[in-house]
Every structure is written in C-alpha cells, then in structure tokens.
Design a protein around this nucleic acid. Structure first.
Lengths: 208, 208
DNA sequence: TTTTTATAAGTGGTCTGACCACATTAGGCT
DNA sequence: AGCCTAATGTGGTCAGACCACTTATAAAAA
C-alpha cells in the first residue's frame, strides 16, 4: 500500500506525487536539464505503483515542466507551454468569441507593453532593438517577442507568449509586413512619445 | 496491440487518445455534465490499455475539462477550472522575482482594464457599478473582479483572475480599504477621464 | 403493496508484473 | 585502437488483479 494518502484519499494520489516531486526537485536543487530518478526508482522511493508515478509525470509533462525521452529518462525543463496549448487549442479554439477575445487581448498586452517599455526601458536597449530591426528581415511575431522581452517582466512575457500562440493557432491570416512601420514605432518609443506610439501601433501595424 | 499509433509512435499514445476523445465528444454532441464511457469501455473501443486511457484522462482532468467521480464515472465539465493553477502555483510561486512580476502584471492588467472600460463601457453599466459600490462594503478583490467583468472579454477576465489568485497566494498583505478612493475611481471613469483615473488608481489605491 | 435491507454490478483508484522499443554502456573480438 | 555485440537501464504499453465507493437490483420485512 502506498505511503502517502492512506485509505480514503483526500486528494488524488497523483497530485500528491506531484507535490512530492516538487519538494524533491526543490531540496535537491535540480534545475533545467537535470535528470530526475527513473519511474521505477520513484515508485520504490515513494512506495506507490509505477502507474501512479506515470500519471503524475503526465501531468507535469503536460505543463511542460518535464520532458521524457524513451530509453534515456525524464528531465527537468524550463517552464513553457507546449502540449497544453495544443490540447486547449484542439478543444476550444473553435469558438468565434474566443477568437475575438484572443485578438483583443493580444492587442491590449502589446499596447501595454509599448507603454511600459517607453516609460522604463533604457535608451541603450531601445537603440539595440532598433539596430536589430534595421539590420534584417523579421516577422511580426519576432518583433513583438523582442519587444515584450524588453520590459523585464517574465510573467508578462509568458502571458503574451501563450496568448500569442493561441492567437496564431486561431487566426492564420498573415499580414504583409511593412518594415518601415515597425521601425517608426521604435523611433517613437525612443522619443518617449506614448500617445503617438500607440496610435501608430493601432493604425499602421494592426491596421485599425 | 493498440490501433492508433502502431510501432514507432510519432506522438505519445495518450495524446492521440485525447484527440480521439475530443472527436467522440464532438460527434456525440456531449456537453457539460454528460457522462463519458467508462475507462474499461474506452479501453476496449480504442483497443488500448486502460492505463493509457487513464493517462489521457489525467491530462484532461488537469485542464479541468472532465471530472472523475469514483464509483460513478467520468463527466464532461465546463472548462474553467484550476488544478492547473494550483499546480503551477506550487511549482514556481517560491521565486521572489515571480512575486514582483505578479504584482506588476496585476497592476498593468488593472490599469489596462480601466482604460478599456472608460473607452467602451456604456454609462449605464458604470452607474450600476457605482450603485453597487456605494451600497455596501467590499474587498479590493471584489471591486476589481467587478471592474474586470465590465470589459466583456472573457479571456482577459480569466487572465486577471489567474494572476490575481497567484498574487494573493504569493502576497498576503492586506491594504486598509479606503472606500472613498474606490468610489472616486468610478466617478473618474464615468467622467471618461483616463489620465486622472489611472493616476488616481496608482496613487490612491495601489499607494504608489 | 410498500418500505427497508441485503446483494450484485458497475466504476474509478491503485498495484504488480510482464513485454516492447530505444539509448547507453561494457566487454570481447579482430 | 577500433569495431561489433551483449547487457543493462529507461520510458511506453498492456493485462489482470484488488480495493473503495456508488447505484441499481432483488429479496425480505413491514
């Protein structure tokens, strides 16, 4: 019988295992790329069946917290979306209202981001951004990935990334890129001109 | 041997099962509350082991798409729930940088929300909001839940809810509520005065 | 007949042991 | 040394077994 969670389970066993794994990762100081014990070893150490271990690992895998490689093992990995996106996508991305909300939200996040960058990014970063944009071709995605990266808020970055990948999955329309508009946006940001930057973004980049 | 995914699997079996389940739900027109076939029956129908079925169900359960009740069965459920939140929470809420990002992001979302409400919510809704706030006591949470609800973007609402629940879990500080500040914010919104509303929010409600 | 109570059947939860497919390693051969 | 082959370790999957719990069924009691 399993050690955690005797008799009538208050929470599902696999969720407790997830918690135990978290502690294990924490106390052992495991970081991205490290290997975690094999399923069989975990099964022994926690005194639970291997199938329960696997259910917990599936949950973590789904969240993108671990990666399993057959024949090799299971590895910690940087938190990223992944399967979750795909799953939710195949399930509920057909709702048109959801699509509209996605586009809207993406836009809000991006204007918000422009505001923040304007009011707090150092000149130097913006110049570097400008150099990058001037020197090469890029996609809308790449541009805003860079931009979102400029405000050093990891959470915000993640939210945008997720919303963006949803939005991309829901809407396959490609905008013809007008590089000069993007460059102009950067210039407006360097001039710290919030209002013009935002209206430029809305009019010339999102074509509203 | 399983029917889906013979020999060298291109994608994991449990993910294929998820897809099959989605189709099944789709074609059978199952909706929230309906019962899906038992694990054993699914196992037979799809010609895969019951453990694989379970791994797929765990994934869906984690996403809040289904609910399992021991002794009864597995049921479809509205997709707005949060094992996911809890899990992610326990996983990376210990990082102090994350905490700061949370507070910041919450603030961004809220100012953003104020902007949107000001520029698109009908007078009537705002008056109603004012009445609600005038008539009773409320928490900061409740106030902003209402406010976020005013811009009719479900996704945005969800994001705020999630960020907010994280933020609350990470930061237990309670602000002493000054109701007049909240009332004043609503008035400023009714006057459609974006700049003042936002600076009032930052200065008097978030005490910056 | 109606109500209560035992029994059976169905279902999710878990464990065990068995293969398979694949990757890495260790030995042994040339 | 270099190559090939076994052995080992790992995740992926399956089958069957119990357990705990719920619901439906049938038998017994009123």
């Amino acid at each position: 019988m399993n050690d955690l969670n005797k008799s009538t389970p208050s929470t599902k066993l696999y969720l407790e295992i997830v918690e135990k794994l978290r502690e294990m990762i924490d106390t052992d100081g495991l970081v991205s790329g490290d290997k975690i014990p094999s399923e069989r070893e975990l099964s022994e150490r926690l005194n639970v069946g291997r199938s329960s271990i696997r259910e917990a690992l599936r949950a973590l895998e789904l969240l993108g917290l671990i990666e399993t490689r057959r024949g090799e093992g299971t590895f910690i990995r940087d938190y990223q979306d992944h399967n979750l996106i795909k799953l939710l996508g195949t399930f509920f991305l057909q709702d048109p209202k959801v699509k509209q909300d996605l586009a809207e939200t993406k836009e809000y996040l991006e204007t918000n981001c422009i505001r923040i960058v304007i009011s707090s990014s150092p000149e130097q970063d913006l110049e570097q951004f400008l150099n990058w944009a001037t020197g090469q071709e890029f996609s809308d995605d790449e541009f805003f990935t860079k931009l979102v990266g400029l405000n050093s808020n990891f959470l915000m970055e993640r939210i945008w990334t997720i919303v963006n990948s949803y939005a991309r999955a829901a809407n396959q329309e490609f905008l013809a890129l007008d590089y000069s508009s993007y460059i102009r946006l950067i210039h407006l940001m360097i001039e710290r001109n919030i209002n013009q930057a935002i209206s430029h973004y809305l009019k010339n980049i999102r074509k509203k």
